[in-house]
């Protein structure tokens, strides 16, 4: 029994559209990645990792930016992760059916999608103005505030996925609540929680806007967090908008390293997730 032509045409059209849409998405990905690689290739040399940001017209590297970014991301992680995991635990465990948890969960999602520039402004007013100077601490704090809701969300969701039988088994053995959470639940949800943390790191590694107002940037090497600190996104921003060709190449090279870092993290996340799902 043949399907009428009209319906068949609609089906073929849908098939064609879906395939085109996928190709469309993949084309952009390839174009962007290819551009980043090609433009930055000239600067992808070892000196990228050994020399500092140069003044206009000279060549150099990005090592002070890599260092500053690494330190601020780590510090943001150290600040944001414990708070995030603790809050997520509350939402999934102790506060599971309370009104507070519902409100916090909702509010957390707002914070999750808050424009990062608003977070930067908040930290500027709170920390930079009060301290009287830009600092890596302020930068790390704004990154922590962007990381926090991601960690809360994934912790809450991964803890909820654990069947209640596991909790009941722990109680049946006489374990107090905190031990059940720490020794049973966290262990079971570990890979999922790590996934969330890694996704958060991938997100904050590329954030520029909040750092503009908090850590500013630094032409020189600085190992002090208490002053302006060079970082990759702001350096890319400054160099990309400049008219100097050497700076452009450096900006693309920095962009390539940043993208590669984030992509590798994402792939790691996927591998971890798959491992975690295997019993």
């Amino acid at each position: 029994m043949a399907i009428p032509a009209r319906r068949r045409v609609a089906d073929v059209a849908a098939f064609a559209f879906a395939t085109t849409a996928t190709v469309f998405g993949l084309v952009w990905l390839a174009w962007i990645l290819w551009t980043t690689l090609r433009q930055g290739a000239a600067a992808l040399t070892p000196s990228l990792f050994s020399q500092m940001t140069p003044p206009p017209g000279a060549t150099g590297g990005l090592i002070n930016a890599f260092y500053g970014s690494a330190v601020m991301i780590l510090l943001g992680l150290v600040i944001g992760t414990p708070i995030g995991v603790a809050a997520g635990t509350y939402l999934a465990e102790h506060g599971r059916y309370t009104r507070l948890a519902a409100i916090v969960s909702f509010v957390n999602d707002i914070l999750l999608s808050a424009p990062s520039i608003v977070v930067g402004l908040f930290v500027y007013e709170l920390v930079v103005r009060t301290a009287g100077h830009f600092s890596g601490y302020a930068g790390a704090l704004s990154l922590a505030m962007i990381l926090l809701p991601i960690v809360v969300r994934t912790t809450e969701e991964s803890l909820r996925l654990i069947p209640d039988q596991m909790r009941e088994a722990g109680f049946a053995l006489g374990l107090p609540r905190w031990r059940v959470t720490r020794q049973i639940l966290y262990k079971a949800a570990l890979s999922a929680i790590l996934t969330g943390i890694l996704l958060g790191v991938a997100r904050i590694a590329g954030e520029t806007a909040p750092l503009l107002f908090t850590a500013l940037n630094n032409q020189f090497w600085s190992s002090s967090l208490n002053g302006p600190l060079a970082n990759v996104p702001v350096v890319i921003f400054q160099y990309a908008m400049s008219p100097y060709d050497e700076w452009h190449t450096l900006a693309w090279a920095g962009a390539f390293v940043l993208t590669a870092f984030v992509l590798i993290l994402n792939i790691l996340v996927r591998l971890l997730a798959r491992k975690g799902n295997q019993p």
Binding site: L29, W31, I32, L33, T35, T36, A202, A205, G206, E207, T208, P233, I236, F237, A240, A251, W252, A255, L258, T259, V262, L263, L265, N266
Partner: peptide
């Protein structure tokens, strides 16, 4: 996963 600043530059 591509950082937004790279979207801007591209």
């Amino acid at each position: 996963a591509i950082p937004s600043i790279i979207y801007g530059m591209w």
